[in-house]
Design a protein around this nucleic acid. Structure first.
Lengths: 184, 184
DNA sequence: ACCTGAACACCGTTCAAGT
DNA sequence: ACCTGAACACCGTTCAAGT
């Protein structure tokens, strides 16, 4: 059982990180985050040995929501619609701050690492939606499901690096979805 | 007219940067680059006030080649083929090292800045190929040409952040091209 | 068991002194 | 006119000392 002050520090660090990442992107100074949380730098490193671990811990809740949403969409909508709606949420999530898409795309995620589990599960849920859309004939069977998720993250990357207008996400995801759709 | 030693230092810096970027990505330490070039740090800053300026100077030749290639392809091939071939070269170029795609995508490029001219011209040449493919009916008129270039850079980003197999570039560009093609 | 904060290393950036 | 390299600032990371 963790000590009460350790638990409180952990939460303060997550709050401070949330704020800092939203302000200046995922490269925000860890030292600043520790100071804003009112803890020593060493405490931050004890709780989160790497920056990615901090990012993933912060994303834990929203990733779990994305995983759950995949199940709901699969049950309630047509496969093509469900996939489109989920990818939109996934891209929106990955575009929340600069650098996040790269963390989510990173191939070096260890499925056994508890801090990466939420990320790995969300990916699996997304791939399942692609597979379902292939089974129903909406998405071409030649497509690699992983490629579809990668392209949704790539769209999120564009949203951060070259923002051009309100409906950019809709336009770019439209291109991706049209690109993986089965011929008529 | 620049002094002979200034000219030589500039070339040494470009050589050293080429090497460093290829080794460790576009975030390579500028200090290391100056040392490898055998010059003081101040000399690097004199020649290239920002990292982007160094990157763009390094890319100048290849960007000019891409611009020229757009003209050749437009003259010798069908619009759809020309576009596909050019985007492949563009994505391959942007994937040469990590972080380069972001520099090329950056919206803050001043068209009047001589160091950005090659980049702006390559973009214009690419957009012209998209427009030509729209005129011939191969690409849907609803597509924003800039979106097509952005997606090619996004593909390059995936190639660096989540590399998955030899023909990943072909697969992902295939999705983008299929996604912007006019309905039958 | 956990925390603090000083210490160290590394790197971007500037600028006084030199040629 | 251009170069050098020391100096400063900033930040990631570690660790001895404290509770």
């Amino acid at each position: 059982v963790p000590r009460a002050d350790a638990q409180r520090n952990r939460e303060r660090l997550l709050d401070a990180a949330q704020q800092a990442f939203a302000d200046v992107g995922v490269t925000a100074a860890l030292d600043d985050i520790a100071r804003a949380a009112g803890v020593g730098a060493g405490t931050l490193y004890r709780h989160f040995p790497t920056r990615d671990r901090l990012v993933l811990a912060l994303m834990r809740t929203s990733l779990d929501e994305l995983t759950a949403r995949a199940g709901t969409l699969a049950a309630e909508r047509q496969p093509a619609e469900a996939l489109a709606a989920w990818l939109d949420g996934y891209a929106a999530h990955a575009a929340r701050f600069r650098g996040l898409a790269a963390t989510l795309a990173s191939t070096g995620l260890d499925p056994d690492d508890p801090s990466a589990v939420a990320c790995v599960e969300a990916h699996a849920a997304g791939r399942a939606l692609v597979t379902a859309a292939q089974a129903s004939g909406d998405v071409s069977p030649a497509v690699d499901p992983q490629d579809v998720l990668d392209m949704a993250l790539a769209v999120a990357w564009v949203l951060r690096e070259a923002p051009r207008g309100e409906d950019q996400r809709r336009r770019l995801l439209g291109v991706v979805l049209a690109g993986v759709t089965s011929g008529p």
